[in-house]
Design a protein around this nucleic acid. Sequence first.
DNA 1: CTGGCATGTCAACACGCGTTGGCCTACAGT
DNA 2: ACTGTAGGCCAACGCGTGTTGACATGCCAG
Lengths: 217, 217
Amino acid sequence: MAERVPSTPSVTPDVDLGESPVAAVAPTAGDHGRPRRSEATRAAILAAAKDRFAADGYERATIRAIARDAGIDPSMVMRYYGNKEGLFAAASEIDLHAPDLTGVPHDELGARLVRHFLERWECDETLTAMMRVGVTNEAGAERMRGVFAGQIGPVLAAVCPVPDQAATRAALIASQVLGMALCRYVLHIPPAVGLDHDEVVAWLAPTIQRYLTAEHP
Amino acid sequence: MAERVPSTPSVTPDVDLGESPVAAVAPTAGDHGRPRRSEATRAAILAAAKDRFAADGYERATIRAIARDAGIDPSMVMRYYGNKEGLFAAASEIDLHAPDLTGVPHDELGARLVRHFLERWECDETLTAMMRVGVTNEAGAERMRGVFAGQIGPVLAAVCPVPDQAATRAALIASQVLGMALCRYVLHIPPAVGLDHDEVVAWLAPTIQRYLTAEHP
DNA sequence: CTGGCATGTCAACACGCGTTGGCCTACAGT
DNA sequence: ACTGTAGGCCAACGCGTGTTGACATGCCAG
């Protein structure tokens, strides 16, 4: 129970949990171009995991349910992703595709940002999953802070006219964007769900614009 | 196993789950002013439940842990609150104390609202609990929609200069307020945590003000 | 053809959960 | 003093969980 030397020589639980959170793309066609058959399974597991985490949150998204969705045995999940935490780490890999805003007219920044995140949020369920898990699970919260610091912060800092307040202003923008996502996609508050894209942009863009470019109030 | 007629004549599981979600104040000193001894226990359970739900969310807040915190046996929780759902219903009883805003100068509405909710959010953990649970649990989400429709909506509708848009505008305000709460109290995004009350008010008040009173953009 | 390894299934494990019913204790009414 | 009952504890139940290791299968190199 103390040590965990892989005694079975055949099975290699090829998960690199802990270091390099890029993870889970790991042991594919590294050598001679022939992709391993397991790639399809890995992908199926990952897709099912994203769905379940998004729909149920961390605790209620059981490995058994994910495996059932993926059409394989629960032990496969363990083999490929080590444990539930590792699976979540892989499933919550996020690329916001935050656009390069340098060159965008300053008075269009707000609208561009709102529209981008609206589309990004609706194109797959990963962001909903991240939010559902981030609220209950410390690892999920850490991941969200990481996305904020690594992907939102820098992009906004590049165009913020008050560079030393960039972090604060990014947090304000995050609060409005995440708040709208929470009301629309998670809590399903009716009037928030009822708005169409253009209306959301029309309402939120001036707010984002002000948080980004206004003088400190 | 099929029917559940209380066979033991002594124990009366006095929980009114289902009807009148005011609940859990139930069987106190109804008769001659002599409070039952159990009131202290009920209160201890409720306090512990609020803490645990706030800290851990619905699934990870176990009845056993709540009972341990309250210094009593898990079966007591069942006796007083029926089941876990009933306990949560009682623990998430919420009164926003939404202030009457009629009479407040129109250009101060934003600041008043922001400051009120900031203080309300920090005075106890019930709101954090509601948010943590509302994100993962449908009953929790329903409760949040109820608070929105029953406590936030009406107060704002009373002062909204565009009455037929009051619901939409209330949702926008909720999105900003809940978003800031999410970033500060749940996700602990550093720049959001670092703001003091006055700074939050200074940044958010104009947003709220605009959502409430501006013309439709 | 044969051996080895990747892929996948099956059955079981230990554990913690919500929940239950029986039992003990102390106190209030008579 | 006796008794009923409210308040509380205890041990157990059935279940679903994450996780494990032994076993089956099929593919590819030699």
